[in-house]
Design a protein around this nucleic acid. Structure first.
Lengths: 211, 211
DNA sequence: TTCGAAACATACCGAGCGGTCTATTTCGGG
DNA sequence: CCCGAAATAGACCGCTCGGTATGTTTCGAA
């Protein structure tokens, strides 16, 4: 009934070990040998499961590529007001990243691949778009302070999230990433939302999303 | 009077070419061969001026290490109020980075070296400290909105600056870095400073610092 | 029990890297 | 003119990397 139990276990071991190495060092700086050593798998076994190091990285990137649209859709479907949707979505994404090495590694690998530049990828443009749309909706709903530029705010929030993730990732493997992002919100929200919408929006930060 | 005119010129050419390569690709991903090709200098000539690739990187890092304390001192000595000092210092540092490839490369190299992690280095801890001190002084001067945590604000601003720099660096070689940071300030300041101090602080952003 | 495929192990290859070495040439100032 | 610093040229070394080729073990089904 389980002809590939062994195989699936080793494949998973490879993925986890690779994620941990890629998360710390990035694609180029993480030698395949380190991944093999960490996972306790030999080269032969590895190339039975994956055709190349690149394919291994792609598999990890894929996990992350699938996660964000699904998460965004879930939060849209809850029918909350734009501001609460925005903050809640952010909060859950951050929480996931802080706990899941594979997601973190996927984000970094996507960045390493898109441009040679550290930290960011085309995914950030997608995030900027998602945030921008939600902030536009929030403005139309009267949640935004007059004079606030939704697109500029989206850019700033994306930058802050990127920076916070990098710092948190390098210092404590993203353990304090959620707390750092809460600090961001507490500082930014008063300049972003009207006095009426500020407190209820901050409430979302108090309640953890996952059971 | 100029026994090493030629030597100094080639040394400078090497530094510039290296800075451009390091800025785009980072230390490891920038092969020495590309630096040599770009600078039009042969291997032999290079190793006459620098003992190693690592030493070349150190020279570039050094430029940046010397710049920041000097700049900070200059702004302290102007005797402005803490908030204006903070924003002005930030603004000029950002402006310098957006124009000087060597500075940018130095920042990236310092990051690549300190931890294997992209974008940040121990320099960011120093920036957090500088910002934190200035924000504490601003609070004591009654410039900060009550309830604002100066240290948390310093962390958030550092994150936003880091993220903005990376995005700007990857998309347009930091050309729009100053504009992005101004967007950050416009969004953050209302939640940071009192209504009384907000407008004068924003004035600093309107006036360019360098003649 | 046997057989074949799935799974694992190891030795090896070629390429690119930073760096060394040596021989030779350019060029400016005393 | 000439001497030594500055620069060129290219062969070469050791290393590590990703990837391959080949051999060996495990294990379920007939």
């Amino acid at each position: 009934m389980s002809p590939q139990h062994r195989a699936l276990a080793t494949r998973e071991a490879i993925l986890r070990a690779a994620a941990e190495e890629f998360d710390r060092l990035g694609y180029d700086a993480a030698p395949l040998s380190a991944i093999l050593e960490r996972s306790g798998v030999t080269k032969g076994a590895f190339y039975f499961h994956f055709p190349s190091k690149e394919a291994l990285a792609s598999a990890i990137v894929q996990v992350q590529d699938d996660t964000w649209p699904r998460l965004t859709g879930q939060w849209r479907d809850r029918g909350l007001d734009p501001l609460r949707t925005l903050i809640g979505l952010f909060e859950e994404a951050v929480s996931l990243l802080s706990r899941d090495v594979v997601l973190r590694a996927g984000v970094r690998l996507a960045a390493d691949r898109d441009v040679g530049y550290p930290g960011l990828s085309s995914a950030h443009l997608r995030w900027e778009k998602v945030l921008g749309d939600l902030l536009l909706a929030a403005r139309d709903a009267g949640q935004l302070r007059p004079g606030v530029d939704p697109e500029a705010a989206a850019r700033t929030l994306t930058s802050a999230a990127l920076g916070a993730r990098l710092i948190s990732s390098a210092t404590c493997r993203c353990a304090d990433f959620p707390e750092r992002m809460r600090e961001v919100w507490r500082l930014v929200l008063p300049g972003l939302a009207t006095d009426e919408w500020c407190p209820p929006a901050l409430e979302v930060l108090a309640a953890p999303q996952e059971p």
